[in-house]
Design a protein around this nucleic acid. Structure first.
Length: 530
RNA sequence: GCCGGAGUAGCUCAGUCGGCUAGAGCAGGCGUUUCAUACGCGCCGGGUCGGGGGUUCGAUUCCCUCCUCCGGCACCA
């Protein structure tokens, strides 16, 4: 195996606006990103995984107004809920950008604006629109009901204000080329097609500022024109580079934005246009590198019903994780919500996945194996003797696992990776049945000659070794997806925690771990409730 | 309206360039093992592959049409 050169990877989630507490829909994105980041780290890449919150959204202002609290207060309260997520969901992000309070962000946005302005891509133009005073919002004709605002039943007035515009049109052909050539890889393909169709339909310059009044006096002011607030999308998209210190470029920005092998954005299908069109155009204008991959996931329904932040019908991921287990939640979201597709979240299905996949297949496999090592070998893993075909088959499958998972993860497909992993655990369970170690133990006891006893004993040892080693390899590979479970299994196998022992990469190779280490039967994995 | 997806066993979905008796997982039924978290393993799926039409020796897979659902074109993870 040739060792791949170590490469750096930058991976982000989109940043949600914080008008409410986080729900499972966003947890999906965080967990997808986390598993991906952990996977690449385990592969020896230098990874920086960043997330954050979109504090400056007008939706936050509205939510605060409805509650009658200052925007700052509402944002602060909800940001805190998002910040609790890493512990609750085992997230391993390296940085968290709060757009309303992070100095790095403010300086980065200003710098980005200035860079685009210096390029001649920002200009002032009158914006005319139908404005509802009650909503403090502009509407298009189609959003109105018989010419009136549906909330206030009043006819909006025509309001005109000067805004700054971004010369999006200038970048149409360049964007087209970058996407068609695959320099920006957009997956699934339908979102790539949508972006292309959108660009081909003709791009028009878009407004990137609001009057201070229209922005609810919330957000970042335009450099040199404090009466204008920067449009929240220009602001929010910038978070990706502000966390790397774009405002004051240093080694971090160089390493993870200028030079990395991959810049990966994970996002939901609702915000593809901003990421596939606006954001790359802004970067082109500022003379910066573009994302290499834009990976789009679908939306979650809950028991078949659309999640709505304002309705608050999205389950709180922290609560679900606490009640059903973090790894059970991670597992459900990573495997049973198929990559790039919409999916349904239900506690029943989560419970079913927990019981039949995690407890019965994986947990029980570990349990029965350690029980046999305990009973037949006093907890000490024996060395293998000669391998029979049945042993070879499982060993071969174990040996191929890493590359199968690698193929899936290179396409950012944790669901496919877990398919492979759990298919392997299933094979290991079949192996137990077929190899029937208990038979060899009995044969050992009933043996009438020393040679017969030795043969049976050796066969039993081989089976146990194959089993333990299979579980070990599986557990190593499980790490990015179910970190706690992985660590617990390795610990029960008597393997020292990462950093002190098996290391990465080679640790997923079958047959590498030496025998004679002592297992420590621990707690039941995924205990079932009833 | 235009563009793009999707409609396959009770549920969730796979099905490469058209072709062996259309598959998997879950749920359910039957059987079986005993190392194990009553867990595992084996067997059981006659489903008009949304409807209709067409091309073809032959279509779930190509073409047309219709129906249903969803998304984009009109600032939601």
């Amino acid at each position: 195996m040739s060792s791949e050169p170590s490469r750096t990877i930058f991976i982000t989630t989109s940043i949600p606006y914080v008008n409410a507490r986080p729900h499972v829909g966003f947890a999906l994105e965080l967990i997808l990103a986390d598993a991906t980041a952990r996977y690449f780290r385990a592969q020896g890449h230098e990874v920086r995984f960043q997330t954050g919150t979109d504090d400056n959204s007008l939706k936050n202002v509205r939510a605060a107004a409805e509650e009658g609290v200052p925007t700052r207060e509402l944002v602060g309260r909800n940001v805190a809920r998002f910040r609790e997520l890493p512990g609750a969901l085992s997230l391993s992000f390296d940085d968290f950008v709060e757009t309303s309070s992070d100095e790095r962000h403010r300086t980065a946005v200003e710098k980005l604006w200035t860079a685009c302005a210096n390029r001649g891509d920002i200009y002032k133009k009158a914006y005319r629109g139908l404005y509802c005073v009650g909503c403090e919002q502009f509407y298009t004709d189609t959003e109105l009901v018989e010419g009136a605002c549906r909330d206030h039943r009043t006819r909006p007035e025509i309001v005109e204000e000067e805004n700054y515009f971004f010369r999006l049109e200038r970048y149409a052909s360049e964007l087209l080329g970058r996407i068609e050539s695959g320099q920006i890889k957009i997956a699934p393909a339908r979102y790539r097609n949508e972006a292309l169709a959108f660009i081909k339909a003709g791009l028009t310059d878009f407004s990137i500022s609001r009057s201070r009044a229209r922005a609810g006096d919330w957000g970042l002011p335009v450099p040199g024109d404090p009466e204008q607030i920067i449009y929240v999308w220009f602001d929010a998209l910038c978070n990706y580079i502000s966390g790397l210190g774009y405002g004051k470029p240093g080694p971090l920005f160089q390493k993870y934005w200028q030079d990395p092998s991959r810049r990966i954005h994970l996002l939901g299908k609702g915000v593809t246009r901003f990421h596939c069109v606006y954001w790359p155009a802004i970067l082109l204008s500022a003379g910066l590198p573009l994302p290499t991959e834009i990976n789009v996931h679908g939306y979650l329904t809950v028991d078949g019903v659309k999640i709505s932040k304002s309705l608050g019908n999205g389950p709180d991921p922290a609560t679900v994780a606490e009640r059903h287990g973090k790894d059970a939640l991670r597992y459900y979201l990573l495997r049973h919500i198929r990559a790039g597709q919409d999916g349904d979240f239900s506690l029943e299905r989560l419970a079913r996945a927990h019981d039949s996949d995690l407890a019965d297949q994986l947990g029980n496999l570990v349990s029965r194996t350690l029980a046999m090592v305990g009973r037949y070998r006093d907890g000490v893993v024996p060395a293998a003797g000669l391998l029979e075909p049945i042993d070879d088959r499982l060993a071969t499958e174990a040996g191929a696992l890493a590359s199968r998972i690698g193929e899936a993860m290179d396409q950012l497909r944790p669901d496919a990776a877990l398919d492979a992993l759990f298919g392997f655990f299933e094979a290991a369970n079949k192996y137990v049945t077929d190899a029937a170690p208990w038979d060899w133990s009995k044969r050992c006891d009933r043996a009438t000659t020393a040679a017969e006893k030795a043969a049976a004993d050796s066969r039993l040892s081989t089976i146990l070794y194959i089993l333990v080693e299979s579980i070990r390899v599986g557990a190593e590979l499980l790490g990015p997806f179910l970190p706690e479970t992985s660590a617990e299994i390795l610990s029960q196998l008597g393997i020292p925690p990462p950093g002190s022992g098996t290391g990465t990469g080679a640790g997923t190779r079958f047959g590498k771990y030496p025998p004679h280490f002592v297992t420590k039967r621990g707690k039941i994995l995924f205990p079932k409730s009833a």
